[in-house]
């Protein structure tokens, strides 16, 4: 087991006062080599779930475990506690995240975007990291872009650099938060190809996506979320081909037009 999230609860303050419960007792575990797609309508809590898993949001209840380290837990009184900053360093090394908006560092070259964190955060040898980064870039079809700056690249190229940046940290698991939602259809294809290639190499991944055909083709498991709960999950052929829940059928129909 690489990731285990148990009974996760998360609320945000609502604009009208009170709170808006975005995640209601959600549990998710991911095994090594698994590719999990999370689908669902906007506001269903998919992205929030990823943000909780990557500690960009703090949970209001439940527990998060990476490998054998319990990173966040809730005691009998319902108080949530996270492990210390120092212990968190190791845990953060277990995962990577690819954002919808890429979030590359614009003042760094493509190469430096990829090499800076392994060198400065993990303290690895610069030459060695650079060699790996060049290999990653070649695998992304961007071997000639090492010295370019993000602003000189198309959205699809930027997202591939962002994937390379995440992979350079050698994560056990890679999260994708709607990686193609900011891209044109043609550019979407080149990014999906890369993710598919990673899936073939058995990279453990959790992908929040609106690309239904893609999710069906690459995933070992599909999760349909709505209203902060997992409505249905299972084999992609089952979920897409023969959904058990009426809500799932309704959602999938909206993609058929």
């Amino acid at each position: 087991m690489i990731l285990e999230m148990k009974n996760i609860r998360k609320s945000f303050p609502a604009s009208a006062g009170g709170t808006n419960e975005v995640l209601r007792d959600i549990s998710l575990s991911v095994d090594k080599g698994e590719v999990v797609s999370i689908i669902g309508p906007s506001g269903s809590g998919k992205s929030t779930l990823l943000r909780c898993a990557t500690f960009l949001e703090t949970i209001d209840g439940g527990s998060i475990t990476y490998m054998d380290t319990v990173a966040a837990s809730t005691d009998a009184n319902g108080r949530v506690s996270y492990i210390s900053k120092n212990e968190m360093k190791t845990v953060k090394g277990y995962f990577g995240l690819v954002f919808q908006q890429f979030n590359l560092f614009p003042h760094f070259s493509v190469l430096k975007n990829i090499t800076d964190a392994p060198v400065k955060v993990h303290g690895r040898n610069a030459e060695e990291v650079k060699a790996e980064a060049m290999e990653l870039l070649a695998a992304m079809g961007l071997g000639d872009k090492a010295d370019a700056y993000p602003c000189q690249l198309s959205g699809g190229q930027q997202q591939r650099v962002a994937i390379a940046r995440a992979l350079a940290m050698k994560p056990e698991i890679l999260f994708f938060d709607e990686p193609t939602s900011a891209l044109d259809p043609e550019l979407t294809i080149e990014v999906l190809k890369i993710i598919r290639k990673l899936a073939e190499e058995h990279m453990t991944m959790v992908i929040v996506t609106h690309e239904m055909n893609f999710a069906r083709a690459v995933s070992n498991r599909v999760i349909f979320m709505d209203g902060g709960v997992i409505v249905e999950q299972g084999d992609p052929e089952e979920v897409f081909g023969n959904p058990r829940q009426e809500r799932t059928r309704q959602f999938l129909r909206s993609y058929e037009q």
Binding site: L97, F99, Q101, N103, F105, A117, K120, V121, R165, M169
Partner: peptide
């Protein structure tokens, strides 16, 4: 500065 820059840095462990 966009929040994304901070978040990208945080996830990378800076």
């Amino acid at each position: 500065m966009s929040v994304g820059q901070y978040e990208a840095a945080e996830v990378l462990g800076y």
